[in-house]
Computed example of a mutant assay.
Amino acid sequence: MARNVEFDEEGAIQKAMEVFWKKGYNGSSLRDLTDAMKINSSSLYNTIGDKQELFVRCVQYYTDIRKKDFQQRLTATSSPLSILINYINDAVKVIINGEESCMAIKAAFEVGPNDERIKDILKADNDYSYQFLYKLIKAAMDQGEIASDEDPKLLADYFNSTWIGWNESFILHRDPAKIKKMAQYFIKQLTK
C-alpha cells in the first residue's frame, strides 16, 4: 500500500518564492526550485504544476504578504501621517538592508510584459498599495497633518513610482545615504 506523503504547500511556495526572488524567473532552474522546496519534480507537477504555475503562485503569495502588512499598519496607530512615515522609513530599510530588491518590481520587469496572469496579480497589488497610500494621505489631510491643498491621488501615485525609483537607484548605486535622503525629502514635502 502506498503511503501518503504530507506536503506543506505554503512552506514549499515560500521556499520557491525565495529562489525566484533571488534568481528571477529565468535564472531559477527547476532543480533550484525543487531542491529549495525539498520535493522532486514529479511531486511539483502533481501538486502545483509546472514552473510557470509555481511562479504565479509565488508572486501571489508575495503580494498577499504585502496586503497583510498594509492591513497591520492601519491598526498600528491613530495618526495616518505616522503610519505613512513609518511605512516610508520601513520601505527604506527594506531597500538598503535587503539582499534583493522588491520581488513585485523584479517580476513586473522580467515577466509581467509577457504574462497576463503575472501582470494581473501585480496590477492588483499596485492598486491595493495605491488605495492604502491614498486612504492614509486623505485621512492625514482630513486630520490636518498634511496640507489640504495637495492632491491625495497624485501623492499616492507619486509615492508608488518614487518607491520603484528608490529600488532601482539602490540596485545601481548601493548608496544607502542617497535613499535615506530621498525618503526624508519626500516626508518633508508631505508635511510642509
Results as ranks from 00 to 15, higher is better:
129 S>W: 04
172 L>G: 10
127 D>W: 08
74 L>C: 15
192 K>Q: 15
42 S>G: 14
103 M>T: 06
157 D>G: 01
71 Q>T: 13
192 K>T: 14
50 D>R: 13
28 S>D: 01
61 Y>D: 06
33 L>G: 02
156 A>H: 00
106 K>S: 08
4 N>K: 14
147 A>K: 14
90 D>P: 03
175 D>I: 07
26 N>P: 01
55 F>Q: 00
9 E>L: 12
95 I>L: 09
89 N>M: 13
92 V>W: 01
162 T>S: 02
141 M>K: 04
22 K>A: 08
160 N>Q: 07
176 P>E: 01
176 P>C: 00
83 I>P: 07
83 I>F: 07
121 I>H: 03
80 P>L: 05
38 K>W: 09
180 K>M: 04
68 K>R: 15
134 Y>I: 00
150 E>F: 06
108 A>T: 11
19 V>P: 00
71 Q>S: 12
97 N>W: 09
102 C>S: 07
65 I>F: 14
101 S>A: 11
24 G>V: 00
107 A>F: 01
125 D>F: 03
131 Q>H: 05
178 K>H: 05
117 R>Y: 12
94 V>T: 15
71 Q>N: 15
55 F>G: 02
56 V>A: 08
173 H>S: 06
165 G>E: 05
178 K>T: 01
106 K>N: 09
96 I>T: 12
143 Q>Y: 04
182 M>T: 04
161 S>R: 10
190 L>I: 02
13 I>P: 03
164 I>C: 09
176 P>N: 02
48 I>K: 03
144 G>W: 03
151 D>V: 05
89 N>K: 14
128 Y>W: 13
104 A>Q: 09
92 V>T: 06
141 M>H: 00
167 N>P: 02
45 Y>V: 12
36 A>Q: 02
75 T>S: 14
31 R>G: 01
79 S>R: 15
171 I>V: 06
18 E>A: 11
150 E>W: 04
18 E>W: 07
